Computed example of a mutant assay.
Amino acid sequence: MPQTTLAILGAGIFAKEAHLPAIAALGDKVKLGAVYSRSESSASSLAELAAKTLKYDTPIPVYHDADPKANLDVLLARSDIDAVVVVLPITQQPGVIVKAFEAGKHVLSEKPVAKDVASGIELIKTYNASYKGKGIIWRVAENFEAEPGYLVAAKAIRDGKIGKLALFNLSAINALDESSKWYKTPWRTVPEYQGGFLHSAALLRTVIPDALVSLSGHATLTKKYLAPQDTINAVVKTSTGAIGIFELSFAAPYASRAGGLTTFTGTSGWISLAGAKATIDGKEQNVNRVTIRSVKEKGTKDKDGNPEFEEVVEVVDEPSCGVRAEFASFVERLNGKDDGLGDPVGALRDVAFIEAALNSNGTAISLTDLVPQL
């Protein structure tokens, strides 16, 4: 496999704490060839940390807006840069993504695909019309879509381990206070940049085998510093008639209230997903614990001649490594292997889900109508 040379566009906390370890995990498959940020100080900070994390002997070239000789256009003009990873505020991403396409670069862009459905549709249409046919690859980095544990749950449902899906329930309650490092970033404090609700929508899209077609819900603001909204409750329906409850909040009053559990109930069993700690290869790790409970006939009958049943339990612990998995998937795609992860249309469906939940105010909204065939 040839080595891929990447550039990171954006130097925030997620680039430092999630993207660099993901690149390091790929070893010799990739090389970080450049770093860009609007300011020289933030770009230099990321480049220095990257050199240490990746154990490079030479400095990583830095690009920023203050120097016309070392700005984004100059970076994109480099023939040795194969692909860019876009980790910029969402209002800036579409323009930068198209600029990268124009320069012939493959793109892995952070979720959401755009700030709203209309913008996402426009961006996808532009890509399909002008760049996809040229062999330029674009993927959207949604790490929940790539989490191995969620893929295990998805396969179990598709394999019929719980029968036909009938109902589901996602509850994710977070305590995000103003002292959190994740709050002290424009991704959380600038309303136009927020995309934190998207993960849970992606989880449902990944695990449920059928399209989510209808949603009715309410959104509210509990803590002013989390404006515009910090809590969503909705009822969702799939194309096959399964119904579910979607409960998501960042406004828990204290850490003791934080936590989550997601369940999928079928006609002959159910699956639960929850975060846990487990020892794998002698090391304690954060895992997604998948518990699959399948109801099966025992092969015996009761006193009235009716078949007797038992519940067979299977527990699978998968390391939480979605960011690393999405990077690995992207590099594999650049080398001709497509596992389907990161499809921009899938990412657009997540935006449509959250947009509908925020705007519903109790009225049923067709998710199918929000996202046309692209």
Rank of each mutant, 00 (worst) to 15 (best):
T4I: 15
A11F: 00
G12S: 10
A18E: 11
A22E: 11
I23T: 06
A25H: 09
G33K: 04
A34W: 05
V35C: 11
Y36A: 04
A50R: 00
A51G: 07
K52A: 14
L54F: 11
D57N: 15
P59N: 13
V62L: 00
V62M: 03
D65Q: 12
K69E: 15
V74G: 02
R78E: 14
V85D: 10
P89D: 10
I90S: 10
V96H: 10
K105Y: 08
P112W: 01
V113M: 12
A114D: 02
E122L: 11
I124L: 12
G135R: 05
I136A: 10
N143I: 00
Y150G: 08
L151M: 08
A153K: 07
K155S: 12
K161F: 07
G163H: 02
L165Y: 02
A166N: 04
L167E: 09
N169V: 00
N174L: 14
A175L: 02
K181H: 14
T185L: 13
P186E: 07
W187Q: 08
W187G: 12
R188L: 09
R188C: 10
Y193C: 11
G196C: 05
L198E: 08
S200E: 15
S200W: 09
A201P: 03
A201S: 15
L203G: 05
V207R: 06
D210S: 14
A211T: 07
A211I: 00
V213D: 02
G217S: 03
A227V: 06
D230Q: 08
N233C: 06
V235F: 11
T238Y: 05
S239A: 15
A242K: 02
I243K: 00
A251W: 10
P253S: 07
G259F: 04
F264L: 05
T267W: 11
G269E: 01
G269A: 03
A278D: 15
T279E: 15
K283Y: 05
N286T: 12
I292D: 07
V295N: 11
K301E: 13
K301I: 04
D304G: 13
G305C: 12
P307V: 02
E314M: 09
E314R: 05
D317F: 01
D317V: 02
E318P: 02
C321I: 14
A328L: 10
L334N: 05
G336D: 11
D339K: 07
P344Q: 02
G346I: 03
D350L: 02
E355Y: 04
A356P: 09
N361W: 02
N361D: 13
I365R: 00
I365M: 07
D369M: 03
D369G: 04
P372H: 10
Q373H: 09
L374C: 09
